[in-house]
Simulated assay, not measured.
Amino acid sequence: MEVSEVSEGPEWPERPEEVGSPEVPKPRRRGRTTLLIAGAAVLGLVAGTCAGFLVQADREPTKLPSLSQSVVKQAKGDGPEPLSAAQDRKVKVDGDLRRLLIKRPRGTQEYSTGDDGWMDVAAYSEEYTKPGDIFSGRLDDEFRRAAVTGWSRGDAYTVEIRLVQYRQEEDLAAAESIHSWKVTGTRSWAIPGTGEGMAYVDTRPDTKPGYLPMYQAQAHAYRGDIAMEIWIFDSKPIPKKTIMDLAERQMGRL
């Protein structure tokens, strides 16, 4: 087989020092005509600028818009009337908290674990199976005070309602408190108009030797710095309507 001849690439040009340095082109001399045209252009520019200044000087100055704003007339009268104590929630919740509790129904007997309608943090904690834990927890939550009311009917039916108020200087304790209840074996419903408020009803009674079987219902909701707690106990199942009605009526007063 014949081997084809490999073609060589283009040869590099000889180095400049070998072929001689190329001649540097010299600037072309400008003729007189070019200088005359340039001078005329400069004179024309100056003349046009002067003419523009003269025209502008003959015109009246354009008035600038005023920088000041138009004066707004002050409304007549003394302004809106302040809210009454019944309308101002701040006044309402900082007053006698017991006045916000719903009234005891007719035909029932008074039942309350409070002292003249009040509970301090110690009395509140004693209502739970682990009072020490509740006591320290409520102190951490900035417990302020609690108003309480309750009633009974017959041998087993009891109701207790508590309005627990927190200082809330660091945490939203009222809102957090309604999530602290662990409720099992119950049916539950949201309380209308309360955001996260919930009501619970036991489906099975709590039984202890020597005691009647006891059913329980409870409701938890909050508004502002006040947490609502409702507890109902009875020896027979508690209807949903009973706990929901109490919860909605009580929250309507806050």
Rank of each mutant, 00 (worst) to 15 (best):
V24T: 07
K26L: 07
G31H: 03
G31E: 00
G31Q: 01
R32S: 02
R32A: 04
L36I: 12
A41G: 06
A41F: 04
A51G: 09
L54N: 05
V55K: 08
A57R: 10
E60V: 04
E60H: 05
K63N: 04
L64C: 01
L64V: 13
L67S: 11
Q69V: 09
V71C: 02
V71D: 12
V72E: 13
Q74I: 12
Q74M: 10
A75R: 15
A75N: 11
A75D: 14
K76F: 07
G77A: 14
P80G: 06
E81T: 15
P82F: 10
L83C: 08
S84R: 07
S84N: 10
A85F: 07
A85N: 06
D88W: 11
K90E: 13
V91Q: 13
V91G: 04
V93D: 01
G95C: 13
L97F: 05
R99W: 00
R99M: 02
L101Q: 05
L101A: 01
I102R: 06
Q109I: 00
S112N: 07
G114H: 05
D115K: 11
D116S: 11
M119A: 03
M119P: 01
A123H: 02
Y124E: 10
S125R: 05
Y128F: 15
Y128C: 00
D133T: 13
F135C: 03
S136P: 02
D141F: 13
E142Y: 08
E142A: 10
R145N: 14
A146C: 15
A146T: 15
V148N: 02
V148M: 07
T149R: 08
G150M: 10
W151D: 07
S152M: 10
R153K: 14
